[in-house]
């Protein structure tokens, strides 16, 4: 990561080890559950697959969060609660409006794009921890999925996906693909494929067609996650375009990796009229209405 984002900390090596160990544990958990014992696990509830799924993913996620949080400067730490609240409130709002997607990772992706993958990881994990502590304990075992979103969105921002708005849905779909694959063992071995009415019916349909339990939950995830993340990434790129470039360029991560292209870098105080979309205008009007 950038030298500016790392506070002077004697525990730097320890944090690196935590991050490496967390990554290895998560990957090893998935490989053990999927490649190691492909058929026998799903045949009965008489196996420790559920324990391995929860323990491996939760321990891995916690190690990553502990390793990542020390890299964050105070300005980023102050931003994370806002992003988590955004995840939870929009996720809740979406269920009220009645759209068939989740949209519960807007804040995570926004923070990843502005402050890098480490910030995204912390935002993602704590979103599910807080969701688990307040509204629904089901969210807790899925914390690792938000880690994937944070990391992938952060590196997508690094390679410049958020410079062109039509690249964002592609990056989102790829992220959704990985999310579906990573979350499938939890849905299968912890919840038996039954995380909700609609998803449960799809899992049942795939099983009736001859899929294994893990195969069915993976296919179910592949049906919904890439679409959901493509939409979420698109929303984030539109929000980012609507934010004043003065605000965006406050972030060292944005300046270092030219997340929004080089032209804003040269003139950091220049407002970006080219990016003022109709939505942004509507937003400004709404903001004025709101402030009144």
């Amino acid at each position: 990561m950038s030298s500016t984002a790392v506070p002077a900390d004697s525990k730097k090596v320890r944090n690196r080890i935590f991050i490496a160990l967390g990554t290895i544990i998560i990957i090893a958990t998935y490989l053990y559950l999927v490649v190691g014992q492909p058929t026998d696990i799903a045949k009965s509830s008489f196996s420790q697959a559920g324990l391995i799924a929860i323990a491996g993913y939760v321990i891995g996620a916690i190690l990553l969060a502990v390793g990542a949080i020390h890299r964050l400067p105070t300005a980023t730490v102050a931003m994370v609660p806002v992003a988590i609240a955004l995840n939870i409130v929009v996720g809740q709002l979406v269920s009220v409006i009645g759209i068939p997607v989740y949209l519960d990772s807007i804040g995570t992706i926004l923070v990843s794009a502005l402050a890098g993958p480490a910030a995204g990881v912390v935002t993602g994990i704590l979103t599910n921890v807080i969701w688990g502590l307040t509204l629904s304990p089901i969210a807790l075992p899925y914390a690792v999925v938000q880690v994937v979103i944070g990391v992938m969105a952060g590196y997508a921002a690094r390679i410049g996906v958020f410079r062109l708005f039509y690249l964002a849905p592609i990056a989102g779909a790829i992220t959704g693909l990985v999310c579906a694959i990573v979350s499938a063992p939890i849905s299968a071995f912890v919840f038996g494929g039954a995380t909700g009415g609609g998803t449960g019916a799809i899992v049942g349909a795939f099983q009736a067609m001859g899929q294994s339990l893990l195969g069915a939950t993976t296919l179910q995830g592949l049906m919904s996650d890439p679409l959901d993340k493509a939409i979420t990434f698109t929303i984030v790129v539109l929000i980012l375009a609507a934010l004043p470039s003065r605000f965006r360029n406050r972030f060292p991560f944005v300046r270092e990796y030219h997340v929004f292209g080089r032209k804003n870098q040269a003139l950091p105080t220049l407002p970006a009229p080219a990016q003022k979309t109709a939505d942004a205008v509507a937003a400004d009007v709404a903001d004025a209405t709101d402030k009144k």
Partner: peptide, 11 residues
Amino acid sequence: MLPLLSPLVLG
């Protein structure tokens, strides 16, 4: 969702 989100995030 967009005209709802932008002012929320900015604010």
